[in-house]
Amino acid sequence: MQHFFGEGLAAYEGMIQGGPYSYGNRVTLADICLMPQLYNAQRWGVKLADLPKIARIKDSLDLIPAFQDAHPDSSPH
Rank of each mutant, 00 (worst) to 15 (best):
M15E: 15
S74V: 02
Q17T: 15
P36L: 08
S74F: 06
I16D: 01
H77F: 02
G6R: 10
R43N: 14
F5L: 02
L63Y: 03
D31M: 00
E7Y: 04
D62E: 12
L34C: 08
I64F: 05
F5A: 05
L29T: 09
Y23L: 11
N40F: 01
H77Y: 04
A10S: 13
M15R: 15
D73P: 00
N25E: 14
A55P: 06
L51W: 00
H3F: 11
P52Q: 05
D59E: 14
H71D: 14
P65T: 04
G45K: 09
G14S: 13
Y12L: 14
G18Y: 09
D59G: 10
I57V: 14
T28V: 05
G6S: 15
K53P: 00
S75N: 09
K58H: 13
H71C: 07
G6W: 04
V27T: 10
N25W: 02
M1Q: 08
S74D: 04
H3M: 11
I64K: 13
G6Q: 12
H3D: 15
H3V: 05
R56D: 04
G19C: 03
M1R: 11
L9G: 00
G18V: 12
A49L: 09
D31N: 05
L9C: 05
Y23I: 10
K53Q: 11
Q37S: 03
L29V: 11
P76R: 00
S75M: 11
N25M: 07
M35Y: 05
R26D: 14
H77A: 13
L51Y: 06
A66G: 04
D73C: 12
D62M: 08
H71Q: 10
D73K: 10
S74Q: 14
L29M: 12
Y12A: 07
H77C: 06
S22M: 10
I54Y: 06
G6I: 02
D59T: 06
Y12S: 06
G8Q: 12
P76H: 04
H71W: 08
K58P: 04
N40R: 11
S60G: 12
